[in-house]
Design a protein around this nucleic acid. Sequence first.
DNA 1: GTCTATATCCAGATAGAC
DNA 2: GTCTATCTGGATATAGAC
Lengths: 206, 206
Amino acid sequence: MIGETTPTRRQERHAATRQQILDVTWELAEEVGIASISLREIARRVGMRQPSLYSYFASKHDLYDAMFKQGNDELFEMTQAIEPSGDARDDLLRFSRMFAEFNADSAPRSQLLFLRTIPGYEPSAEAYESAVKFYDLSRDRLRALGLTKQRQMDVWVAMLGGVIQAQAANDPGGDRWVRTIPEVVDMFLGHYLSESDANAKKGRTK
Amino acid sequence: MIGETTPTRRQERHAATRQQILDVTWELAEEVGIASISLREIARRVGMRQPSLYSYFASKHDLYDAMFKQGNDELFEMTQAIEPSGDARDDLLRFSRMFAEFNADSAPRSQLLFLRTIPGYEPSAEAYESAVKFYDLSRDRLRALGLTKQRQMDVWVAMLGGVIQAQAANDPGGDRWVRTIPEVVDMFLGHYLSESDANAKKGRTK
DNA sequence: GTCTATATCCAGATAGAC
DNA sequence: GTCTATCTGGATATAGAC
């Protein structure tokens, strides 16, 4: 990468403190909600005064941006870690469960990444790049399962998102909706893969 | 009803002003987001000073409660206005479109009723009763369409909610997801009504 | 019911010494 | 980098006169 060199000890310390601040912020967000975190309380928890945070983040907006980026990067890596097996049902199921688990793991993170209801915050263009990376990878993975049309992907995005939202809203911490995922996968694939098959049959003998 | 009598002129004026405050608050919420409304700005827009609002609402929480109740009451009436035709696909389609339209009509209202991400606000028990009324009516309507099992209803709640959320998040003001509703209805009914039919066939000749 | 005045509390951000 | 001190601005809510 351009400009990347061995970090000095000072830079390492800086990065470590920055990470500590992020960790504490996620903890606080779990307690009070992602929209209600305050720089004062974050500073208190890391043992600093509130203005000192500005040596690590230029603003609260910048802190949200770092969290947004971190969340999307984690999601990207978890998606990459799923090796496609070739079986569409199995792959879609594993991807869906991973994504549902990721969202259930942290309500504030889910809200930050996908709901975007935090007063005054919108991701910067730079932070948004991390989100795009995940979207692109997911799109490729879904394509490989035979979901080649935009409309098929749109519907699947809605289905899975719906299960996740219903889970978070109506049974947080439980599994009443998450456990319907296999059934929803079957319903979806039953409808759309037969559609693809029908088209394939028309064109050529597979 | 108990204790209900003809309202005096004073009571009528009070109710009218209260409604005007609510109207202005919805307008403001459209502009700044439901979480960012302020009593000062609401008062300014109705031509009052901020403390005067307390003659109409006991607190900001109380104002949110009135909005929550109003939204759910509207939704209840719109649901009631849909006359069941007997055709499951048609009825589910009309219900779904109405519900999608209701949510698309007002993002703040949708967030207040279904997302519950407003810092510091949770509906009071009294306001929540309006939500329960709508849920009960919807459940009865879905039952009449042959969706008798809890799991079927859970899945449908997720599917429709997913379409609505994807629409709001990814294409606000458009129809990229809303227009998939007929297809999603067919996918859902294809999967679950055949399941019911199969059970019905086992039990008796229909 | 409406007003002025104010209590009380909180937030994010900046200046400048060390 | 971290601190103290402060700026600036916002919020909800209440007291009490009229």
